[in-house]
Amino acid sequence: MAATIGRFIIEYFRWIKGIALLFYNILYWIFVGPFKGKAAHRQSIFQQMVFVGLHSVVIVFFVDIFTGIVMAMQTAYQLQRMGAVLYVASLVAVSLCRELSPVLTALVVAGRAGSAIAAELGTMKVTEQIEALETMAINPIRFLAVPRFLALAIMLPCLTVLGNISGIIGGFIVGTGSLHINPDLYMQTTFKYLELKDIYTGLIKAIVFGILIAIICCYEGLYTKGGAEGVGRATTRSVVASFIAVILADCVITGIFFFSKS
């Protein structure tokens, strides 16, 4: 029993070390590589941005609009008792921008794009494609991980903005349609209590989540072992680890914002 726990802890620290090393290498290739004449390809960064960002638009839109709708209905249920139904608007907007939209978008992207990244890189690893790159003196981190990293770090905040807007639309539908709040008043109340800070803290979260998802999924992919089964395992692990990392990071960042205020 003790041996099993010990082995688990050692494995865990080895994993953390691997992730940290990959992060270091990615940063090296982003910031130092270009000065050595070896930048990542703009074209493949763009391709990854389309895959991660543009192809996630529909699912992010639907997830956040329905979250907005549900949020509006649930808060209205409480606020009706106090006769403060109008504040549904600001509650929905603030909680979406600060918390729900960044987290939900990150989870959606981790499930959709992160798993695909792990599966693709994992398949490349087990079919010798990564080794082929190394033999051709092409660094796999620069060639494969950097474009995915940049794409996720850039596109996740963009998707979060989209999520914010669709969530507010969801709230607006319930607020005006079912709670009979005047549309102009609804929008006024939304922006009256929504500060710029609410939006940018959400976006900072989104950038951190994007970075975490990218490193974890690239790591699981690049270090896949053991054939088709290994690719399956890497894909599952990448999604599970990304989810945990996103929630954990959310807790930490919210804590930092919360306690640094006072």
């Binding site: 693709e120 398949t123 010798e128 494609q129 080794e131 082929a132 051709m136 003196a137």
Partner: peptide, 28 residues
């Protein structure tokens, strides 16, 4: 530098699946 003077044919070819034949050869 030394690796650039090598060519290697892999057992399972190890072509990049996401690239066409032309792009694979163009890669190096």
């Amino acid at each position: 530098e030394v690796k650039r003077s090598f060519g290697m044919l892999f057992q399972y070819s190890a072509l990049l699946d996401s690239l066409t034949v032309e792009e694979n050869i163009a890669l190096p």
